[in-house]
């Protein structure tokens, strides 16, 4: 299944829960924020939210800023 993660098309194999995507593409999951097709998915819903072919997923985290 192909999805777009942070602007890059990725082929997902296996499970398509948001929690799996976070585990696969983020070095650590603390304070990571996810959006699927522009809708925020809170971390407590990662385990019961799946993504589908063509979905746009954003993985966002805090960085330094003024």
């Amino acid at each position: 299944m192909k999805v777009t993660i942070n602007g890059t098309i990725k082929e997902l194999t296996g499970s398509s829960y948001v929690s799996d995507i976070v585990a696969q593409f983020c070095q650590q999951s603390k304070h990571v924020i996810t959006e699927v097709n522009g809708r925020i998915v809170p971390s407590h819903d990662w385990n019961n939210t799946t993504v589908s072919e063509g979905d746009h997923i954003e993985l966002v985290a805090f960085v330094g800023g003024g």
Partner: peptide, 16 residues
């Protein structure tokens, strides 16, 4: 602090 897309190809420290 600011928010940005995670660079999924590289390790990124959690500033918090």
């Amino acid at each position: 602090v600011a928010l940005r897309r995670i660079d999924i190809e590289r390790h990124q420290e959690n500033i918090l």
